[in-house]
Design a binder for these strands. Sequence first.
DNA 1: TTACTTGCAAATGCTTTGCGAGCCG
DNA 2: CGGCTCGCAAAGCATTTGCAAGTAA
Lengths: 139, 139
Amino acid sequence: MIDVKKLCKEKGLRMTEQRNIIADVITEMSTDGHPDVNEIFLFANKKDKNISIATVYRTVKLFEEYGVIEKHEFKDGRSRYEAIEEHHHDHLIDIESGEIHEFTNDEIENIQRTVAKTLGYELVDHRLELYGIKIKKNN
Amino acid sequence: MIDVKKLCKEKGLRMTEQRNIIADVITEMSTDGHPDVNEIFLFANKKDKNISIATVYRTVKLFEEYGVIEKHEFKDGRSRYEAIEEHHHDHLIDIESGEIHEFTNDEIENIQRTVAKTLGYELVDHRLELYGIKIKKNN
DNA sequence: TTACTTGCAAATGCTTTGCGAGCCG
DNA sequence: CGGCTCGCAAAGCATTTGCAAGTAA
């Protein structure tokens, strides 16, 4: 798992008390989730009452620009973040519980690149989200 | 090409003057684009000064619920709409010009279903967007 | 007739920003 | 020290909604 704080330092980001805390919070929350800004704020604010939500917004934006965290905008409206990971992955969202599962599929990645090229484009980014409901096995 | 107004009537939607105009506007604009609410509003308002943007919002939401138009939320923030088409398709967005290209790829569709099933889910919806830049052929 | 629609303006929810004070390097 | 960062409150932006008046069926 990536250590967001460490990565920030490596990238030469000026680290303040708030940024250190927010970085740690995102690292922690990324192990099992994709927190939105408010969730990050609540968590960070618990560790340091002096952190405002404006700072969280500014910080996640900064971290994203520096490529240490990734932003996702699923169909629920708000932006969600996670520490970058070694390997790219996409998401499947449980539309009933909101649970988010990660998966990788090289085949899809390749086809995407091919499709783009066919249309005369170089693929620079993409978004693939699956929305599903749990299959109930009743037998 | 789908006639939104006609489809609305078929689905039993109560058609007001405003809904008729908005339906027609979306049909027209869908032939070569994916208009956002403001674009639909401006166009509809030109035909009938009495159409407010609140009505456009209410109407596109209604049309979407009735399955006569489709909503997309690309990375530019606002919601875009298009008349539903016979065949499902995905989009490639030119990140420099904003141009939107449509494409279909059954292979990807199949893999998605397989991936979902592997994770224990039934796929009910998905989102696939490619973002690219035009390849310049200089030879 | 009567429930459904509308325009308007106010409210919402998420996000950004101007400002003066505070802090990192 | 000097520029970057912060907290706060106000502003922004897309979208939604309460309400009284208007309209389709």
